[in-house]
Write a protein that binds this DNA or RNA. Structure first.
Length: 213
DNA sequence: TACCAGGAGAAAA
DNA sequence: TTTTCTCATGGT
């Protein structure tokens, strides 16, 4: 099976996902940081708290007392860590001139800048690049490693950039496809057999070796 | 009760 | 250089 064939099967099975679930590009950025090792439902609560306190702008996040910021972030877990990471990101974002200036920067250069912000790793940087800046970069997450190593399309333990390169060369360079594909992978992973975390359901013609479903 | 969730960075080996 | 530990809440 090829990357394109998997994509087509997932799309046919689950339909369009309409990602990223956010009202603004800055909200996408905030969500990308808050979702680190955290279920999205908890991130939604934290974002709602930020919004209710008018803290959903970069300057408001920097101006808010740390205690208020951590209080907003509590539902998403790691609140002390994420408060600092969010502030680091907002400081960089404002200094860099925000969306109008950053939109003019080459994707590779922008990615390097993002990775220099403490708290922004490869996956978070790529989620921001793809879903907020609409750049054609493929997001590799734990689900992608698990599913595609089981399909024997990837080596699950390979470095992040190696896997990303394999995806990007195996697909047409298309922001819309990269956007949809990652969303479908997450959707599929959540839908997979609950008794056997990580197994792949029948829509990919794979029988879980543990549960024999 | 235990485990997992849309990771990243620091510390230890 | 690679592996392990820490951060933390909420749902199942």
């Amino acid at each position: 099976m090829t990357f394109t064939q998997v994509y087509n099967k997932l799309l046919k099975h689950y339909g369009h996902q309409d990602w990223w679930p956010a009202k603004t590009s800055f909200e996408v950025m905030v969500g990308a940081i808050l979702t680190q090792n955290t279920a999205w439902t908890n991130v939604e609560r934290a974002i709602a708290r930020l919004e209710s306190r008018a803290c959903l702008t970069p300057q408001a996040i920097l101006d808010a007392p740390l205690s208020e910021l951590t209080e907003c972030l509590k539902p998403s877990g790691y609140f002390n860590l994420k408060a600092q990471r969010l502030r680091n990101y907002c400081q960089w974002y404002i200094n860099a001139g925000e969306l109008p200036c950053l939109s003019c920067i080459d994707t590779d250069a922008l990615r390097k800048q993002l990775l220099m912000v403490n708290g922004i790793g490869p996956e978070t940087a790529d989620a921001i690049l793809l879903y907020a800046f609409e750049r054609p970069v493929f997001v590799i997450d734990a689900y992608t490693r698990r599913i595609f190593s089981r399909l024997k399309l990837l080596a699950g333990d390979a470095p992040y950039e190696v896997l990303q390169d394999q995806f990007e060369t195996g697909l047409q360079t298309d922001v819309a496809v990269f956007n949809e594909y990652h969303a479908l992978i997450v959707c599929h992973a959540k839908d997979a057999c609950k008794k056997c975390p990580g197994c792949i359901d029948c829509c990919l013609s794979y029988i879980c070796p543990s549960c024999k479903r």
